[in-house]
Design a protein around this nucleic acid. Structure first.
Lengths: 220, 220
DNA sequence: AAAGGCTTAATTGTCGACAAAATAAGATTA
DNA sequence: TAATCTTATTTTGTCGACAATTAAGCCTTT
């Protein structure tokens, strides 16, 4: 992966990152209740920092909170997955459009180089880099949009939920070469400063990705 | 306006709504620092609820928070406005598409009736209802998408920032009749279940709206 | 007089305790 | 036995105080 410049400052930061990771990885099981006192003793911090962490998790849509009742880890469902990919399609399509407009030539060149290296690795059989490469690619497009709203909603929010679906539904899977071709075409459109095409290709890419996951979900 | 079913439960809820309103309306001036102790005495609640309220405001992008430093009200800028409308275009375009897919016939009929009543009011010279009507229209489309992510990001988040720009830059302004025509065309596309057209028209509608505001911003 | 470092003041982060609400358990009544 | 009301326990919401960090003011030094 690239720059994961999320270094915790306060204690609430650290517990937030821990909790988020435990939820995404399934250590804290999907759908279960989050007891503040329990987590407080488990993570060895006060209830105040647990509360703040939970609030932040709620803004990522990783937990749902009800007043005077408590918070539960979000439940994964086919409908939830569909809704998630609907907004991904809209936001990342726009991100690709804006990336074609605002990315510098250097950034584009770097992204092309990245694709080359990933392609070589995959051709060499290292399927391990597949997901990391995909994540990296999408990160660069989103940050290349230079739009702070897009960046925060996607990177701080939706992507963690996407990863949660991937991890917990066992989506280490294939779709390697075809996805790489799609990435290549998107980057080409961006390099040509073709906003329209970049958006269309990105939306199609995400639609394919959704269909792929749905198919697996159905077979499982 | 329609159903603003945001009724405060806890004290933190109430403070959050108050603070949000004061920021949007400009009572708390854009760009200034938010002192926790100060707000605590001013709103007559403990610092804990002020902190929670500020955290929630941060998730709406109405304030920006730095660890160990504090929170500031977001600064309004032309670039910020452009970025805001870029994501509006993406999200509301998708919302219109999904509304064409998922809204019930009854909901669509109700929306058509609403447009009629608004049209009569505007034709009668009651320009007061213009913005409320616009807000109402967009709310219905977004909720009609049945997509919880779209709903929360737009209604709980971006729309407040949109209103902040409108209020503080004095955008009570016109664009009445043309906007109504655009609304009408969008609803027609939704009634015809034409997803593609609904999305295109909504994106164009928001683009026009952005250009209109930008023009005013430039003249001011 | 300007720049840098040190001390002091103010602000944010964290904690434990109390208050209020909701859930669970038990008793009473139909 | 089922349902409802009451009681008890647990959980969340709120508060004030302390700790840690940052910002401000003052002094020293060149």
């Amino acid at each position: 992966m690239t720059l994961n410049n999320e270094q915790p400052i306060t204690s609430a930061d650290k517990t937030f990152y821990q909790l988020r990771n435990d939820i995404v990885e399934g250590v804290i099981v999907s759908g279960c209740k989050l007891s503040e006192t329990e987590l407080s003793t488990k993570y060895e911090v006060s209830r105040a920092v647990i509360r703040e962490a939970i609030n932040r998790l709620a803004t990522c849509h990783l937990v749902e909170r009800k007043a005077n009742v408590g918070a539960r880890v979000v439940a994964l469902s086919p409908e939830g997955l569909v809704q998630l990919y609907q907004v991904r399609e809209a936001l990342e399509g726009m991100a690709a459009r804006l990336a074609a407009r605002y990315m510098s030539d250097e950034e584009i060149a770097a992204m092309q180089g990245l694709l080359d290296s990933h392609f070589n690795k995959v051709k060499g059989g290292e399927s391990y880099y597949q997901e990391a490469g995909d994540v990296d690619f999408h990160y660069r497009i989103v940050t290349g949009s230079k739009n702070s709203h897009l960046i925060s909603v996607l990177i701080d929010g939706l992507y963690h939920l996407v990863r949660m679906y991937r991890v917990q539904l066992g989506m280490a899977g294939p779709r390697v070469t075809t996805a790489f071709d799609e990435h290549r075409h998107i980057v080409n459109a961006i390099a040509n400063r073709d906003e329209e095409l970049a958006e269309i290709l990105m939306r199609r890419h995400i639609l394919y990705s959704k269909n792929n996951i749905e198919k697996k979900l159905h077979n499982a």
